[in-house]
């Protein structure tokens, strides 16, 4: 398979009946937790794959598949702020890009020896990170509690 070619769009089987619209956008969107979502040109080192965008009541989910086959989902509020990200796949996403200004807080927690090789939990007032797994099978999420849309349940971060 040519890694530079577009990846197949994944069907989001978990969508609820609250989906208002579903569209495929061809320009990949690079977004950072806590920042405004922005559409930028391809970054060959970072995220580079097709994008699927799904609007649910009160927020939008952008799904990206990285060249390493990791699925990254970016949850964007109605005002355009990225309030949560999740990932699932064989390699970790680039946390400097994904977590932005929250990267240092994540990194400090990543030095905690108690967590063990396969699990990391950050329970900060402004940042929650749950990162699990091993190479070939990582999964996790990160969100900013103060940016969660009203009536949003963190259980909806898939």
């Amino acid at each position: 398979m040519n890694p530079a070619s577009a990846k197949a769009i994944r069907v989001l089987g978990w969508l609820t009946a609250g989906v208002l619209a579903s569209q495929v956008i061809c320009l990949p969107a690079l977004a950072t937790l806590g920042e405004d979502v922005a559409t930028v040109e391809n970054d060959r080192v970072q995220m580079k794959a097709q994008l699927r965008t799904t609007s649910v009541a009160g927020y939008t989910v952008h799904e990206i598949e990285t060249p390493a086959n990791t699925i990254v989902r970016e949850y964007v509020s109605a005002s355009g702020k990225v309030f949560a990200v999740s990932w699932s796949g064989p390699l970790l996403p680039d946390f400097r890009q994904t977590l932005g200004r929250y990267f240092d807080e994540y990194n400090n927690a990543a030095s905690s020896p108690r967590a063990g090789r396969r699990h990391l939990s950050v329970e900060g007032t402004d940042l929650v990170v749950n990162s699990h797994g091993h190479m070939r099978a990582f999964y996790g999420n990160a969100y900013v509690p103060s940016l969660l849309p009203p009536n949003f349940s963190v259980a909806d971060i898939q």
Partner: peptide
């Protein structure tokens, strides 16, 4: 340790 995901690059490993 990584396998096919790292043959193609792009993962920063």
């Amino acid at each position: 340790d990584c396998g096919s995901s790292c043959v193609q690059g792009g993962g920063g490993v």
